[in-house]
């Protein structure tokens, strides 16, 4: 069992990520004021996904973790997609 310790992430990196997150928040608010039809939701979800990847990989140290952690996340996302997607197979075609 290898005990691997993380190197501390410098403050600078975190602050840069934070600025990026704030910028993305501004973008998502700005875009939401423009009428794009159903595209609005997809843009909002896209930006939110981008923001959450930043949080996951940097704030939550996923970048430094072993492959197992990423694999776990992948499993979660696949299962989530199944749960949501398969429900829509019903509701969209009813």
């Amino acid at each position: 069992m290898s005990e691997h310790k993380h190197e501390p992430v410098p403050y600078r990196t975190f602050i840069l990520i934070w600025i990026a997150l704030l910028a993305l928040t501004a973008i998502t608010i700005a875009v939401s004021r423009v009428h794009l039809g159903p595209l609005n939701v997809w843009v909002a979800l896209g930006v939110a996904t981008l923001k959450s990847s930043l949080v996951l990989f940097f704030f939550m140290h996923l970048k430094q973790e072993t492959r197992l952690f990423r694999l776990g996340l992948l499993v979660l996302l696949v299962i989530l997609a199944i749960f949501i997607g398969m429900t829509f197979i019903d509701t969209l075609y009813r």
Binding site: I79, I82, M86, D90, Y93, R94
Partner: peptide, 22 residues
């Protein structure tokens, strides 16, 4: 096992397409 829950619901009024897939 996580893909097939709909087979409990064939008589519930779920869409026919979903019944087919499940």
């Amino acid at each position: 096992g996580s893909l097939v829950w709909g087979h409990h619901m064939y008589a519930s009024g779920m869409s026919d397409f979903a019944i087919l897939i499940f």
